[in-house]
């Protein structure tokens, strides 16, 4: 139905809008600052060249930053996720496994996706919250924020994945 580019553009717009309009305004607790933006980078096609992946990660972060008033933070964290994504995929994928064009929760399975997203989100949130606090001074607070926020972000991401991936399988 959609081309792969249209699909990703729509996903980017949806995720950014959701983060800017809803999730950043939740103000749940200082320990829960979820961020679903890395999901966009993590769902880009496998075959995308690494330099392009990094540029997309960087600029999608900049666009979100402009609306969130946090210029630089999401760009730096998004870029990091884009840079390490191929390493994570190599690390957790069995040799010789053949995948579809893009990561999809129904073709790779729940376990693969859980490990994939957990590693990436944990790295993203650690980096993001560390540069945001700018110091190691309150390390316990920082670690609690990272772990609890990552769990909540992952929950949001999986809800989104199950809501939107079902349709995709039916079309294929």
């Amino acid at each position: 139905m959609f081309s792969i580019i249209q699909q990703n553009v729509v996903r980017f717009l949806l995720l950014t809008a959701l983060q800017v309009m809803v999730i950043s305004n939740l103000n749940l607790s200082p320990f829960l600052v979820p961020n679903i933006l890395p999901l966009f980078i993590l769902l880009l096609p496998f075959s995308i060249p690494r330099w392009m992946l990094m540029l997309i990660g960087f600029f999608s972060g900049v666009i979100a930053d402009i609306f969130l008033g946090t210029l630089g933070f999401n760009a730096a964290a998004g870029l990091l996720v884009a840079y390490i994504r191929p390493f994570i995929i190599n690390l957790i994928t069995p040799k010789g496994a053949e995948f579809e064009q893009s990561p999809n929760i129904f073709s790779q399975g729940f376990t693969w996706f859980l490990i994939y997203l957990s590693i990436a989100v944990l790295i993203h949130h650690s980096f993001y919250l560390l540069i945001e606090s700018g110091t190691f001074y309150n390390i316990i607070l920082l670690l609690t924020r990272i772990i609890l926020s990552s769990i909540l972000s992952l929950a949001f991401m999986f809800i989104g994945l199950y809501l939107f991936s079902v349709k995709k399988r039916r079309i294929n």
Binding site: R50, W51, G72, A75, A76, L79
Partner: peptide, 29 residues
Amino acid sequence: YHLLMLFLLLEAFSFYLIFKKSKFHSATF
């Protein structure tokens, strides 16, 4: 190491934006 270079370059640019922001970011926003 061109990928690592690109990574470091863009990362340096993001940190430049972050440190410049105290005067700049909210105005842009």
